[in-house]
């Protein structure tokens, strides 16, 4: 499959997915701007958001690439998939904790506004990225696995098709899950 792709096939398979990605990202950007501007803690949230959005590259991207590689080289099975999922979740918790800790440090040493004035607590800053990432992955992992399987089954190269579509899905749901997390935790 991979070794036979011509440049035409690469464009044919990647471009339509990229259009979906572009539209999804423009929507994500618009929603993000509309949602975040209404929060008092906007300045600290806007620093967390790019790190959360980079989760598609840090966690979802490699998960999708590993699944499609396993499908193409014939090593896809339930055991490898479960371990792939577990490792992605384990990495996501580590990443989320670090994002939270770093945002606390930024507020304490650089912004000096939210924790001091008790607008937002340290615990909340740790919990926000953890819940947001876990919620996003719970949507992203089944969706990307299903798309990978469908793409492979119908003769498309999963590497070309799934990643760009999932970028849009991941970015869009990261914003939505981030918003729900803020609502759940009662972030001002």
């Amino acid at each position: 499959m991979e070794s036979q792709d011509t440049k035409g096939k690469i464009v044919q398979e990647t471009f339509p997915s990229e259009i979906v990605s572009i539209i999804g990202d423009i929507l994500a950007g618009l929603i993000l701007t509309l949602i975040l501007l209404t929060f008092k803690s906007f300045l600290i949230l806007i620093i967390i958001i790019p790190a959360l959005l980079s989760l598609r590259g840090n966690l979802s991207g490699p998960f999708i690439a590993r699944t499609s590689k396993d499908l193409i080289i014939g090593e896809f099975n339930s055991k490898s998939w479960i371990e792939n999922v577990l490792s992605t979740y384990a990495l996501s918790i580590v990443t989320a904790c670090l994002i939270g800790i770093f945002s606390i440090m930024l507020d304490l040493f650089l912004i000096k506004k939210f924790i001091d004035k008790k607008i937002i607590s340290m615990e909340t800053l740790i919990i926000i990225p953890i819940i947001a990432i876990l919620l996003t992955l719970s949507i992203s992992i089944p969706t990307s696995t299903f798309l990978n399987y469908l793409a492979f089954r119908y003769g498309f190269n999963p590497n070309n098709v799934v990643n760009p579509i999932m970028t849009a899905v991941d970015d869009f749901f990261t914003v939505i899950c981030f918003y729900f997390t803020l609502l759940m935790l009662g972030v001002p």
Binding site: D5, E18, S21, I22, R56, I64, T167, D171
Partner: peptide
């Protein structure tokens, strides 16, 4: 955000293709 994801997507596609190759 779309520019970020465009270059990110293309790099992801390229990396996964190169790895499979």
């Amino acid at each position: 955000p779309s520019l970020n994801s465009l270059i990110g997507d293309i790099c992801t596609v390229l990396t996964s293709r190169l790895t499979t190759h």
